[in-house]
Computed example of a mutant assay.
Amino acid sequence: MCTCLLSFDPASAVPVLLVGVRDEYADRLWDPPAAHWPDRPDLLGGRDRQAGGTWLAVNPTLPRAGCVLNGCGADAPAEGRLSRGDLPLRAAGDGELGGLDLPRLDPFHLVCAEPDRVRVWTWTGLELTERSLEPGVHVVVNTGLDASCPGPTAIPQHALDGIRARLGHFGPRLRAAERPEPKDGDTAAAWGSWLPLAEGDGLDQDDPRALLHRHLTDTGRVFATTSVSLVALGPAGVRYDFSGRPGDPAAWTTVLG
């Protein structure tokens, strides 16, 4: 149930604003954002200890950011399956997906954001598509840019209902919020009216619209929102804030400012 909230305004001093919300099993270990990959020292991001990749990567030099979400469709065969954690590194580092062995990857949506363009690649397990986003506010969820599943395998109805509720709540709320131009100062000063939205907009974790959630699965494991990233891309550089305790206002740190 990961979510990417995004505003693209090429006429702004800060054309790209991105909120990356990661949902994962709470017991899956990870490291906070840093330059974790020796072969890609230009990239920053949190590192998943299990597979070694990331859910969101930032290239402060270009600048460019990549953010991956699980998609819906036909999963890859278990034998030989590759981690999708390499995808944000490819997007932020290269801006392209050349050389991917797609049949070994489960479905995904991959956001690649730059100050002058934002693209979303979608892999359904059968087909790869690329879409360039128009200026405006976009909410990317596990079904893509809307609540229809492009792949051959339908997601559970309760999950689809939650996605629709989240889209219906946060899309209008983002469009109505004053658009910040994050620069100096702490996270609250930099992100203004976007910060309360990134912190869940006051919704309870069990609300169907919730951006930040936590629940017990049928297997007894906790599935929850484990981190939130705020990324601003502009010609003058990158602003990158991170929270590993979503919903706690004191948990924000500035990775790049």
Rank of each mutant, 00 (worst) to 15 (best):
D201M: 13
A236Y: 02
V14H: 02
A232E: 02
I163S: 05
H215R: 13
T225H: 09
N142S: 04
T254A: 15
W191T: 12
R209D: 06
G98D: 15
T143E: 00
T219Y: 05
P182F: 05
A57F: 09
P249A: 15
W55K: 03
L233A: 01
D27L: 04
G93W: 02
A176G: 02
R179K: 05
P208G: 13
W123C: 01
T217I: 03
R84I: 10
G80V: 08
L5K: 08
S12F: 11
S83G: 07
H36Q: 10
L128M: 13
S227I: 06
A188Y: 11
D94H: 15
A165C: 14
F223I: 09
H36P: 00
V228T: 08
A210F: 12
P103D: 12
L174H: 03
L43G: 00
E127T: 12
R119V: 14
G247W: 13
L56I: 09
R179F: 08
R84A: 04
L43Y: 01
P60F: 11
A224Y: 08
D207S: 12
L230V: 10
H36D: 08
L87R: 01
R22F: 03
R209N: 02
A210W: 13
P180R: 06
D184C: 07
L44P: 00
F223M: 12
A236H: 04
C72K: 01
G71R: 03
G171T: 15
D204I: 10
D106W: 09
R28A: 09
R64D: 08
A210T: 01
V231P: 01
G144I: 10
A92Y: 07
S7I: 11
R179E: 06
S83M: 09
E134T: 06
V139I: 07
D9S: 06
V58L: 08
N142D: 02
R81Q: 11
L126F: 09
D161V: 15
L128T: 01
A13V: 09
G95E: 14
A26I: 06
C2G: 02
S229G: 07
C72Y: 07
P246Q: 12
L233F: 03
A57Q: 05
H158M: 14
F223Y: 14
P63T: 10
P10D: 11
T143S: 15
P249C: 13
G234W: 04
T122H: 03
V139R: 04
D161S: 14
R239S: 12
A250S: 15
G168Q: 11
S148F: 10
W191P: 02
L89D: 04
L128S: 02
G136L: 12
G98V: 12
H215S: 13
G247Y: 13
I155F: 10
P182K: 04
D106C: 10
G85H: 11
C149K: 01
V14R: 11
D241M: 03
D101N: 14
H138D: 04
G71D: 01
G45P: 00
F170R: 13
R49Q: 12
S7Q: 13
R64C: 12
L212T: 02
D48C: 06
T225P: 00
P182N: 02
D106Q: 08
G71W: 08
H215A: 12
G125A: 09
P172V: 04
G257V: 08
P38K: 02
D23C: 11
Y25W: 10
V120W: 05
L197C: 03
Q205G: 14
D27E: 04
I163T: 15
G144W: 11
P156L: 10
